[in-house]
Amino acid sequence: MSRPRYVRRFSRSERALHWVHASAFFVLLGSGLVLYLPSLAAQVGRRPLVKDVHLLTALAWILALAAVIVLGDRRGLRATTRELDVFDADDRRWLLGKDAPQGRFNAGQKLNAALTAAFALLFLVSGALLWLGERDTRFRLDGTIVLHDVATYASVALVAGHLYLAVIHPTTRHALRGITLGTVREDWAREHHPKWPTDAQ
């Protein structure tokens, strides 16, 4: 057996964005659940402290995302965004549950990226409104809390599926190497992402 060849799947900027978002998500989820669930809130207490953790993490999250975009490979990120945006006929067949060859991102990953971005924006807007609403009633809208809550439920479901495929599911979990070290096995890439032109790297 020859040693496996590796191909680069994610740039440093892409990995930085992913891990900034992922780590912020879990800190925000943990502190948010303590603020939200009566049973947890009653057990942990210390509401002002938990609130500060939640708010400062949100601030750090936005600043870190902005920093990666400003200091990172902006051209590469733009190209990746376009790749994620565009669905071809194979992608749509794949979404309908049929087998169809996929590129660097399969259609599910593209959809996951779009939904994650949308939820991030909705969390940011509703979170800012919650913060402002405590200071000025003009910012208190009827549905702010519900939006923040429903975005949480939806994101948790999305992340649960994402984690299953990235960590547990035997044929897909090799992808975890790509988002941590940047490279994946070439044979795995050819099998799972046959339309991804790995030789062009």
């Binding site: 994620l84 945006d85 565009v86 669905f87 071809d88 006929a89 992608d91 749509r92 593209k110 959809l111 990226a113 779009a114 939904l115 971005a117 949308a118």
Partner: peptide, 10 residues
Amino acid sequence: DEQRLGRAAF
């Protein structure tokens, strides 16, 4: 046949 479904979903 390309469609910008990513931004549409977003």
